[in-house]
Design a binder for these strands. Structure first.
Length: 891
DNA sequence: TAGTTCACG
DNA sequence: ACGTACGTGAACTAA
């Protein structure tokens, strides 16, 4: 018979991980009493996985008892300086214990000892009683307990991802055995436990020493044999620290526990109590798991209680009841199936007017005179969830919405774009409203997506949405105000949403014939290249498969793999570029890839999305990016090729709606660097922009210490340009060296020179990071926020990333603010002047127009003017333009 | 559905 | 000593 299984869990450490795994959801996980529940929820999820995997007969969850332990007697500062447990977590700990008891799982804590020691003790007891032991923790310290019979599982990222430390795995990771790991820690110290170890000895050196000497004691016994070095000196100086470290690092496996192995056998689950617990915590998922049969009625009750709302179903006969007058504010919700509102089926709609809710599944009712009037009258204000979606949807019904001044989706995106969702249920939940069911729930997904047949279900759904838009409006507006974002909301995002709706509805004309021509050309080239590649390779294979390609290049042909990915060899461009000279096949693969990309993504991709009107209608996602930029989908019009000759051909298919008209394009010159010059206030760079220099040449002159820009060579300019870009991204010498293919040292020199020449930019970068640390977010010129919780991360990489983000976001985001303002002003100008020209595409720093022949001269004049005057900065904004009979010629 | 690659600013 | 440029979307393969 197989051994019995014992599962030991480090309660505090796992709760800690669980808490931070869902830290971003902290405020979404609250029970009705306001208690945070994210750690409890995640802990239970993880426990389920463990119980299922390990199938233990005995389980113990150990907790830390008090503040001080026997280790503090040896070293007063043990764990000193550690940030204290956040209140939002400590309030959850008692409930985790309660949950465990309801589940029939024992918990234990022992005065004067840490959870580690309890676990050590029970792993020993378990082994002695013939158990296979599994330990689960978020703390690597416990890996010293790994033996042939004991496996230590340590959380990697999040909670669900565990790394199993067996003695073999320890050897792989640290180069030492589990017991030797104690000596390793003694030498290197432990920052988080606040003991120092030996000066200048880190994990690598410590591991080496332990491998050589076996233990700290043995090392010092033989230290005289070591030849004189800084290391030896440090070891001698810090001998006390090393010996103390060893004591601190050693887990006590002989603690005087007052319970035995039989006491921690799993007991029966107390279902009634567990149910009450889940109810108290508002854990609907676990409740429905409890007994799936009862779940339906449970949910039903729940729903009835919360959602059964008063509403009137609208029909042709009672339409007259629905009425509002100028100055009134009403709520409107238009339901559509699926994300693409240009094509989606209508589901129904809801109004809330003067406390009354009206619903119907028949959207044609909206065309009835009084309803259409409600929606089109500018003076009757409408509150909605997703202005753009609603406007485009109504437009398909021939209704031209006006007077939508409030959009719940946009508001919640501005308040916090981090966990923003376009699912209304999720947005509501963030603000403590759980009444709205998610569309996924109500409509289903994929093949089984459908409109509920039951009127009650559908109407309740629509009604709760109308209700929630209204009931949360005050909260959201107050938040906007608190963030000083009322202006950003009302004067930028709402108006730009209206502009975007117009652009999407209009679409841009794409000629299928131009694309099919390209399709033939590319198909010919591709099959030719394919043959050549097969010949060189000596066999046929799928060139598009990185796996197969890697096999051919690096195994069959013996080229040296430069980079690896998670799954195998990397075959990306920069790898292949480095291998170019090795074999002629490389060049062919590169060209093949390039053409294949253009063929599948752009030629075929675009052909698939041309609508009946001969146009493509993209959707601009206004509530997605972290920085405030737009993104574009179905199709993405923001990444149409421009860098290669073949790619550019695609642009020839984008044409004006009238055969003799023009595509007019206007883009900001260096907008991000100009924003940087503005927000940093750097005199040198501002001066360069004011005098209209070529900014990259100017930078080259300065960082290479030249007298004039005449001395700048193309190489210098190229390098200076890369540095300018790097600065915007939050530069590092490594990144720059890789980008420019130069040494890291040289890259560092460029950067140092740069900061010397533009000192205020350096100040800006430091300040951006500092401010983000203090406030927890970065901000654009228009108060658009980006929260950066990772700025406090312990992990260097995670933190560094947040720091670069703190530098980049205000720059990228302010540039996004500026072009949004330009778009609003531009549309207003087009309207005022009654022009037929349409704004059709936005590509971050560029606007594209569909211009009738006779308006070209006007447009040439007003577009750059409007863009350049969007905001007033200390330096000029410059916009360059071009035009032609298609997008290709518009440059 | 995740991972890789590559198109854009 | 750490291991990196910032922001996106789509196609494809392979599980």
């Amino acid at each position: 018979m197989a051994n019995q299984k014992l599962l030991l869990i480090d309660g505090n450490s796992v709760a800690f991980r669980a808490f931070y795994a869902l830290y971003r959801q902290l405020e979404n996980f609250r029970n009705p009493e306001g208690l945070h529940t994210n750690a409890i929820y995640t802990f239970k999820n993880m426990l389920d996985v463990l119980l299922n995997d390990v199938k233990p007969d005995h389980v113990l969850v150990a907790f830390d008892a008090g503040k001080t332990t026997f280790r503090n007697n040896m070293y007063a500062d043990y764990k000193g300086g550690r940030q204290k447990t956040p209140g939002e977590l400590s309030e959850q700990l008692p409930y985790i214990q309660e949950l465990l008891h309801d589940l029939g799982i024992s918990t234990y804590e022992l005065e004067n000892y840490e959870a580690d020691d309890i676990i050590g003790t029970f792993s020993r007891i378990g082994e002695e009683n013939g158990f296979d032991v599994t330990i689960v923790t978020g703390d690597k310290d416990l890996t010293q307990l790994a033996t042939e019979k004991t496996t230590v599982m340590v959380t990697k990222s999040g909670v669900m991802n565990l790394e199993a430390y067996t003695p073999e795995h320890m050897k792989e990771v640290n180069g030492v055995t589990p017991t030797e790991f104690i000596d390793m820690k003694a030498l290197m110290g432990d920052n988080s436990d606040n003991y120092p170890g030996v000066t200048k000895v880190g994990p690598k050196k410590a591991s080496q020493l332990v491998q050589e000497y076996g233990s700290v004691e043995n090392l010092y016994d033989h230290i005289d044999e070591m030849k004189q070095s800084k290391l030896k000196e440090n070891l001698l100086n810090d001998k006390d620290k090393a010996l103390l470290g060893k004591k601190l690092a050693t887990i006590d496996c002989q603690t005087p526990v007052t319970i035995g192995i039989d006491d921690i056998k799993r007991k029966d689950i107390d279902y009634p109590k567990l149910r009450r617990f889940y109810e108290k915590m508002n854990f609907r998922k676990f409740l429905s798991e409890l007994d799936p049969n009862a779940a339906d009625s449970e949910n039903q009750n729940d729903e009835n209680e919360k959602v059964l709302m008063e509403y009137t179903e609208l029909t042709k006969d009672n339409l007259a009841k629905v009425d509002a007058k100028e100055g009134d504010t009403i709520v409107f919700y238009l339901g559509m199936l699926g994300p693409n509102y240009h094509l989606a089926d209508f589901v129904g709609f809801a109004f809330k007017i003067a406390g009354q809710i009206y619903v119907s599944r028949d959207v044609d009712l909206l065309k009835e005179e009084n309803l259409q009037h409600l929606l089109e009258d500018e003076k009757i204000k409408k509150d909605v969830f997703d202005l753009k979606r609603t406007t485009v949807g109504l437009n398909r019904l021939g209704i031209h919405a006006h007077g939508i001044d409030y959009d719940m989706l946009l508001a919640s995106y501005l308040i916090n774009n981090e966990n923003n969702s376009d699912d209304m249920a999720e947005v509501c939940r963030m603000y403590g409203n759980n009444s709205v069911r998610s569309d996924l729930d109500v409509y289903g997904k994929g093949k089984s997506e459908q409109i509920p047949e039951d009127d009650k279900v559908l109407f309740n759904h629509l009604a709760t949405k109308a209700e929630a838009i209204e009931s949360l409006k005050e909260t959201l507006l107050a938040k906007l105000k608190e963030h000083e974002q009322d202006d950003l909301f009302a004067s930028i995002e709402i108006p730009v949403a209206r502009v975007l709706a117009k652009m999407e509805i209009n679409g841009i004309k794409v000629l299928p014939d131009t694309l099919t021509q390209l399709q033939d050309e590319f198909a010919g080239e591709l099959s030719k290249m394919e043959k050549e590649i097969y010949e060189e390779a000596g066999e046929e294979f799928n060139i598009n498969s990185p796996k197969q390609l890697g096999h051919i290049l690096f195994e069959k042909m013996g080229l040296k793999p430069i980079k690896k990915t998670k799954t195998g060899y990397s075959t990306s461009v920069d790898v292949l570029n480095q291998l170019k000279d090795e074999n002629p096949i490389i060049e062919k693969i590169l060209s093949y890839r390039q053409i294949a990309k253009i063929q599948s993504t752009y030629v075929n991709g675009l052909l698939d999305v041309i609508q009946k009107d001969g146009r493509v209608h993209t959707r601009y996602l206004q509530t997605l990016t972290a920085t405030g930029r737009l993104s574009s989908v179905d199709p993405n019009l923001q990444n149409i090729p421009t860098r290669t000759e073949e790619g550019k051909q695609i642009r020839k298919a984008f044409v004006p709606s009238q055969p003799d008209g023009y595509i007019f394009s206007c883009d900001y010159s260096q907008i991000e660097l100009r924003v940087l010059a503005q927000v940093s206030g750097d005199e040198q760079m501002q001066e360069a922009f004011r005098t209209g220099y070529d900014i990259h040449a100017h930078t080259a002159m300065r960082i290479f210490h030249l007298k004039s820009t005449d001395e700048v060579t193309p190489l210098m300019r190229r390098r200076a340009k890369a540095v300018n870009f790097g600065i915007v991204y939050g530069i590092s010498d490594y990144g720059l060296s890789k980008n420019l293919n130069i040494s890291r040292k040289q890259a560092k020199e460029f950067i140092d020179n740069y900061f010397e020449q533009y000192p205020q930019i350096k100040d800006y970068m430091d300040k951006a990071v500092k401010v983000a640390r203090e406030k927890g977010y970065a901000e654009t010129i228009m108060h658009r926020r980006r929260y950066l919780p990772d700025i406090h991360a312990k992990n260097f990489n995670v933190r560094s990333f947040a720091e670069r983000t703190a530098i980049n976001s205000p720059i990228q985001g302010s540039a996004a603010d500026i072009i949004k303002i330009a778009m609003i002003n531009m549309q207003q100008k087009l309207d005022e002047m009654h022009l037929k020209t349409k704004m059709v595409v936005q590509v971050h720093d560029e606007l594209i127009f569909d211009v009738p022949k006779d308006e070209l001269e006007t447009i040439k004049k007003i577009v750059p003017e409007v863009m350049q005057s969007a905001v007033r900065l200390d330096i000029p904004l410059v916009a360059d333009s071009g035009y032609g009979h298609n997008w290709f010629d518009a440059k």
